[in-house]
Design a protein around this nucleic acid. Structure first.
Length: 156
DNA sequence: GCCAACGTTGGC
DNA sequence: GCCAACGTTGGC
């Protein structure tokens, strides 16, 4: 079983939206590396850190779980969708995604700023300059360290 | 709002 | 297949 960080901009889809819906098809990934993680490396049962990007407070907001195999992202076929890709077709969908189940919202977010100060997290892709990938693999140590920090009373 | 880093596009 | 131009991401 593997662990992942999945980024979402809270202005378009926040941890509260995720909590309310209970699960989400992870639509709109239009980067091949991120897509390939979903298509080739993710397995049902993998756990994810739901990360709020772009809009403060930046940081780990909660947890989710992969609950489907990859399947075509139909938003690529919809001309009305912001994720529309005219190259995609039913026969050749190009873009795939997985479903992710909501597990929990952290009582305290683990802020990006805090992550930069935790030794166990220094080799995370997320902390590297210019790291833009919206889906990133992390180690079990990264995952448990973030969870521990999220539940610690010294957060904030 | 700025801009560095990176991915994609398209002319050659 | 190279690479300059362009667009996007996302922290600051």
């Amino acid at each position: 079983m593997r662990y992942w960080i999945m980024k979402s901009e809270p202005k378009s889809y926040s941890i509260d939206d995720f909590a309310k819906e209970g699960f989400s098809p992870w639509e709109g990934v239009r980067n091949y590396q991120a897509r390939n993680f979903m298509m080739q490396d993710m397995e049902i049962g993998d756990l994810i850190i739901f990360y709020h990007s772009n809009t403060p407070p930046l940081g780990a907001a909660g947890l989710g779980k992969i609950i489907s195999k990859p399947y075509p992202d139909d938003t690529a076929l919809d001309p009305e969708s912001i994720y529309y890709d005219k190259r995609a077709s039913v026969e050749r969908p190009i873009w795939y995604h997985v479903d992710v189940q909501f597990l929990e919202k952290f009582p305290h977010f683990v802020l990006l700023k805090q992550m930069r100060e935790i030794p166990e997290l220094q080799d995370m892709m997320l902390l590297r300059k210019g790291s833009r990938l919206s889906i990133q693999p992390i180690t079990k140590t990264h995952f448990t360290t973030i969870c521990t920090q999220a539940r610690s009373t010294t957060s904030f």
